[in-house]
């Protein structure tokens, strides 16, 4: 496997190659700057905005993080409750299954009617999207726990609450990793959509305003910053989960 420093180097070279190619295409003048501004034009747009950019990044980052955290925690909790209380699970399942395929964006008109353009409405939208992913992921992860662990826990005299706390919860964590990452990516897009529809700040708002004035460098700046935020949060999320699951045998370890 690759050492850490080499892995970072590979990423950096890959990103540099991408921006280099982009710059090359624009420098050769194959495409009009309005259709595809050069990376330097985007950088210039960022410098023009200067510190004025900061509130937008901050607002979007806050919405992503809080919406994701509330939604993911709520979804995992709900998933565990549906398996802990089978009656509750049976009663809730049809609702989960019928709401799950509905894109959360479809609910936006109602959210605007009910909550206006408040932060609360935005967070609710993001949380709902994340929660619906994680309820199902949690239920599946619980189903996949090897029954031998549950039997061993029962035979040691653990109460049901403790079986969930000390066996079920840690056992499902590695499997929740994928669901959490998918939910995080979804929360980025939901935050942007909610900002498109109505906000006073945020990267989605920045893009909407730039759209009106055909300022394509600013639009691209917003997109790149969203990608950067998304990448950073995903990296932190992965590191966090890896830290909680160091007990796992990983493929990297077994191929060494």
């Amino acid at each position: 496997m690759f050492s850490n420093s080499r892995a970072v180097l590979i990423s950096i070279v890959s990103v540099a190659a991408f921006y280099g190619a982009w710059w090359g295409i624009t420098a050769l003048g194959w495409i009009k700057p309005l259709l595809l501004p050069s990376p330097f034009a985007v950088l210039q747009a960022g410098m023009d905005l200067g510190w004025g950019l900061f509130p937008h990044v901050q607002a979007t980052a806050f919405r992503i993080l809080s919406g994701f955290t509330i939604g993911a925690a709520g979804g995992i909790m709900l998933g565990l409750l549906t398996s802990y209380f089978p009656f509750f699970g049976l009663a809730l399942q049809p609702h989960i299954e019928s709401w799950r395929p509905v894109p959360p964006v479809a609910l936006v008109p109602f959210f605007i009617l009910w909550f206006g353009f408040s932060v609360f409405g935005k967070l609710l939208l993001v949380s709902l999207g994340c929660a619906l992913i994680l309820v199902v992921q949690t239920q599946e992860a619980v189903r996949n726990i090897s029954p031998r662990y549950i039997r061993a826990a029962h035979s040691l005299g653990l109460s049901k609450v403790n079986v969930y706390r000390m066996v079920v919860l840690p056992a499902i964590l590695p499997e929740l990793r994928s669901g959490l990452r998918i939910a995080l990516a979804l929360s980025v897009s939901l935050v942007v959509v909610s900002e498109f529809l109505g906000a006073q700040e945020g990267l989605g708002y920045l893009i909407t305003v730039a759209k009106v004035t055909f300022s394509t460098p600013t639009i691209l700046l917003g997109i790149i910053l969203l990608g950067f935020l998304s990448f950073t949060f995903d990296w932190l999320l992965q590191k966090g989960i890896d830290r909680l699951t160091t007990w796992r045998e990983t493929i990297a370890e077994s191929l060494e």
Binding site: R151, A152, L156, G157, L158, N162, M166, P170, A171, T245
Partner: peptide, 29 residues
């Protein structure tokens, strides 16, 4: 699900997420 009788299984049932010590102290007794 009577909780008086511990069992040793053929398969490995040591909880991988707990240290060796905590695998023992998970038992409330």
């Amino acid at each position: 699900n009577d909780q008086r009788i511990p069992m040793i299984f053929q398969q490995d049932t040591v909880f991988p997420w707990l240290t060796v010590h905590k695998n023992l102290t998970i038992n409330p007794l």
